[in-house]
Design a protein around this nucleic acid. Structure first.
Lengths: 347, 347
DNA sequence: TTGTACGCGTTATCAT
DNA sequence: ATGATAACGCGTACAA
């Protein structure tokens, strides 16, 4: 593959001049510039980002470590991150932690070795030594979606408590009393926040939460299914099941469907995280929507600021309740095309 | 950030020795090795992949350019590619072309500059000059999912014709005659193949395809919706709509639902590409499943072979028909949990 | 305006 | 077994 040297020789100039043309730096004659560009075209020269990075000590590359690429929430997040990064002239290298701390660390390590200019991390579980070191070493780092207490790292995330409170009030107004919650892992900030918000909201509404109505899940579909099975087997089964994320809602759906139960007649369902296809289910699922796109874009912008050594602050964005018909809402609710608009309640 | 030089100084050895230890190359005393490792730990040294790549002329990185990261088919594909690549010691840089040739080229260019060791490309539309150059320059390249005629590039893809023929026979056996097809872009090999296979299968079954029953879509949800609208407005509307991919099926679902029509009573629906949540719809959607995981893994393996200069061959994997209940199948079909197994027909 | 020469961090060759 | 050093491709300080 042709290098600057080849281009220089072909154009009859020095490598410095070639470099100047390539970085359109000042002071190059139009004539020489043309000659260089011609040589570039003839040789099919492509700048070597590896050598360039070694020299400039910058890769124009961002790392993004997400929890689970098959989770539509993270897919959409990754998409938004890519878009914003490209707009800012960065490439993104994605690492899929698969919700495993060891795999998260594998990618963090790889990305550090690749000398990414900054790192967007959706932390899986607790603080690992590697993450602690990364913070200490001062690599521009931003937590996304989830946060890790005790570390001084800017975080971009959605606030779930208000929307969950709105959901619980909505369910109460619908006449429900026995509401169960399938929580995410207590190790994750999002898991904790949602569970605590649910408990607080129930209390605020004067609704009891029997021990059996708080099921522990792990944000994966399988746990949602088994939790639902246990819930439905209870002597006093809940009227509503609220899943802590979309994957566990999927599992709940599986179990409900396998038992031949009907939603919302036999049991109602709602969940945290909205999905494009929830509106195609029968009945469409009442859910809490996070501002996913905005989350991704903001995170990139905050990281870019950090990279440029400008002061940054954490960002907390509101989630909102999207009322549809899986909780016994009156017919017609959220049925229109842009149902999200009219049928939704701001959290 | 500490470099080999710092480690060498600290350990009281030369940089060459440090390098030897890091690459556990032969002939290093256990004692010196220990000293070096200790220095590495103390300094928190991380090898610089940039410098390493410059020297070795290899990045252990693969590029993957996909059509649309929000399309679950590509998401799953990306996941499989990542998994296999990691197993082989490669990192993957994903580029989301968003089905736009200009954006595809943007990522191809970026990846070439980053000096990826090999490139997995799901071509968007026609051959671009950049792709032609890339082939000519001899960069290890493998087409994935889609192919580009006239270029000598190994391709890993699924074969759709047999499954489509099976689907058409299935529909005919169910008593349907008026079957419409929403095709993908003719510029894409997958779009062409599926459309041609549909036409051939209909002919083989002795079923007519009136002009209006072949609608042109672009693999995006919006086009599926508008095509469905046109189809349903036809004086002799089809009994079945077959969508060329899952996104267009989503659009079809939207339109059908907006009109208050019932599936399959008013109109039946089937589509190419299976999705995890098709089984949660009411009724569950009859679809054609591609061996997505296998596609991704095989593509990485073929690319790795190419990188190592071993001879490679294209791979064509079979798709299979998954019969559920959206086409008027008898009650009970595909209703069991692992319905995919029992309810499916090998293509 | 243009050219020469050094150094980025690493691996590999050649000595010792 | 270990060390000195060249080279990878590029950007830039300095000289001309």
């Amino acid at each position: 593959m042709a290098s600057v040297k080849d281009v220089a020789r072909r154009a009859g100039v020095s490598v410095a001049t070639v470099s100047r043309v390539l970085n359109d730096s000042a002071s190059v004659t139009a004539a020489t510039r043309a000659r260089v560009l011609e040589a570039v075209a003839e040789l099919g020269y492509r700048r070597n980002a590896v050598a360039r990075s070694l020299r400039t000590d910058a890769t124009r590359t961002l790392g993004l470590v997400i929890g689970d690429i098959l989770n539509p929430f993270f897919t959409e997040l990754a998409r938004a991150v890519e878009d914003e990064a490209r707009a800012l002239g960065y490439s993104v290298v994605i690492g899929n932690a698969d919700e495993r701390p060891d795999r998260q660390d594998h990618y963090v390590r790889t990305l550090l070795e690749q000398r990414v200019d900054g790192l967007l991390l959706c932390p899986t579980a607790e603080i690992t030594p590697l993450v602690r070191d990364t913070v200490r070493d001062g690599l521009p780092l931003v937590f996304l979606d989830r946060t890790l207490p005790g570390l001084d790292v800017p975080t971009v995330r959605a606030e779930g408590a208000a929307a969950i409170a709105a959901l619980v009030r909505h369910l109460r107004d619908l006449g429900h009393r026995r509401i169960a919650f399938i929580s995410g892992p207590a190790l994750l900030s999002t898991g904790r926040e949602r569970t605590e918000a649910f408990a607080a909201a129930m209390e605020a509404c004067g609704l009891p939460v029997p021990g059996g109505h708080l099921e522990a899940g792990d944000f994966q579909a399988a746990s949602g299914r088994s939790a639902t099975a246990r819930l439905l087997d209870l002597p006093e089964a809940p009227e509503v099941i609220v899943a802590g994320d979309n994957l566990m809602a999927l599992g709940a759906l599986d179990e409900i469907r396998a038992r031949g139960l009907r939603i919302p007649r036999d049991v109602a369902l709602a969940c945290y995280d909205d999905l494009p296809w929830f509106t195609h289910l029968d009945p469409p699922v009442t859910a809490i929507a996070q501002p996913v796109q905005e989350l991704g874009r903001r995170a990139v912008r905050v990281l870019a600021e950090r990279i440029e050594d400008r002061p940054v602050e954490s960002v907390v964005l509101p989630s909102r309740l999207v009322v549809r018909r899986s909780c016994g809402e009156p017919a017609g609710t959220g049925e229109r095309d842009a149902g999200e608009r009219e049928g939704s309640v701001r959290a």
